Computed example of a mutant assay.
Amino acid sequence: MAEQFTEVDRLRETLLESLEKADKRQEDISREDVLSRIENVIQTIVISVSKGEAPVLKVMNRSSWTNVRFQKSVGLVLKADVSLMAIRCDCPSSATKFALILKLLSVIYKLVQSDSYATKRDIYYNDVQLFGSQRTLDFIVDDVSCLLKLATSKGFISGDLCYLEEDGTKVDCNSSSAATPVSSNVNGIRNIVSSAKFILIVEKDATLQRLLDDDFCTRLSPCIIITGKGMPDVNSRLMVRKLWDELHVPVFALVDADPHGIEIMCIYKYGSMSMAFEAHSLTVPSVLWLGLLPSDIQRYRVPEESIIPFSQADESKINSLRNRTYIACQPAWEREVQTMQRLKQKAEIQSLASIAPHFLTRVYLPNKLRYGGWI
């Protein structure tokens, strides 16, 4: 067993050396800070009304690449002169959005004041008629997160990890059958205890459950597995960053060999446009691509029936990825992206099961971790 992870141990030593030079700034946001930020927004609105002006909320344009720049040691960070969107209460195209943001600010303010907790689903079902759809609420939550510079949680974590929540609650993630929800207050976590040799980010909760069913965390090596259930939420990213800062172990990503999987991995590693203002506390630039590599599809002879041809959406996404600076600065990653684009095919992690039922946990991952099969 000791010999099996020699390559991971070497990587850990290299990581420790680089972390000595890394910037680990991470800002804790208190309840008072949250209340103060909401009060400042409301105060601005009240002042506008008192002057007889139509109130306007200004939010960063979260879909514009012109607002961010790439910094290799951190990821995507905000430019100094970001473009803002004006959300006006007197404009038919944005009045509804303005009202929904105020409603959500009110809900958040009351929750923070009473030291209570609610999921996005809870908020939606408390006023289904107002929000109309969960998707609408999700967009509003993202806008409010950006407006207040706060974070939102849907991820799960499991493995060799124990810690205390801010209120003193002990959380033990050592379970071979079920994962633990990622904390809704990652910055408040303390007394982290773990002997994990590495952290494994997985794209889907189905993959995480498969690893747990095969007792991957204990049978193979002490480790921590985390998933943001697809496109990661902020708290899942905060948790990966916190564990990386605290434990100084390698961080690997296991995602589908498709454009969507690559983008998810890049968000953990380099960040996103919408949360570029929090890049220093959200990104882990040392994330390594463990699999599923596009080149693995042929290398492991994944059966044809498990390979999926590209769609038009895949073509658009892969072209977008190739134009991003952070892909171009990683030659090995760029080669894999080029391979995928050339073959015009993709495969999910689950496709490895078509080779053999336990191929992922008993052959693919052990060999990758033993021989350094990551990029």
Rank of each mutant, 00 (worst) to 15 (best):
R12Y: 11
L15H: 07
L15W: 12
E17N: 10
A22V: 03
Q26W: 15
I29V: 15
E32H: 07
R37Y: 02
V41Q: 10
I47V: 14
I47P: 03
S48Y: 11
V49A: 04
K51F: 09
K51P: 08
G52Y: 01
P55T: 12
V56W: 11
K58P: 04
M60I: 14
R62F: 04
S73T: 13
L78V: 00
K79N: 12
D81H: 07
S94D: 03
A99E: 14
I101T: 11
I101Q: 05
L102W: 06
K103Y: 05
L104I: 06
S106D: 11
V107T: 13
Y117I: 10
Y117H: 15
I123V: 05
Y125E: 14
D127C: 00
L130N: 12
R135N: 15
T136G: 04
D138F: 02
F139N: 15
L147C: 02
K154S: 14
I157N: 10
I157E: 09
D160T: 00
E165K: 05
T169Y: 07
T169S: 03
S184A: 10
S184R: 12
S184C: 08
R190H: 13
V193H: 08
V193T: 11
A196E: 07
F198I: 10
F198G: 05
I201A: 08
I201H: 01
A206K: 03
D213R: 15
D213N: 13
R219P: 00
L220H: 11
L220E: 11
I224F: 02
P232C: 13
R237H: 01
L238M: 10
H248F: 09
H248T: 12
H248S: 15
A253R: 05
V255L: 06
A257F: 00
P259K: 05
H260D: 15
M265E: 13
C266M: 11
K269C: 01
K269F: 02
Y270H: 05
G271P: 13
S272K: 01
A276W: 06
E278Q: 11
A279P: 00
A279S: 11
L282F: 03
L282Q: 00
V287F: 01
L288Y: 01
W289N: 03
G291W: 08
L292K: 07
S295T: 03
R301Q: 15
V302S: 06
V302Y: 08
I307A: 03
S316E: 14
K317R: 09
I318D: 04
R322I: 09
R322A: 07
R322M: 15
N323C: 05
R324Q: 15
Y326R: 08
A328Y: 04
R335D: 00
E336H: 00
E336F: 00
V337S: 02
Q350C: 09
S354W: 06
I355A: 04
A356K: 07
P357Q: 03
H358N: 13
T361N: 10
Y364V: 00
L365S: 09
P366F: 03
G373Q: 08
G373L: 07
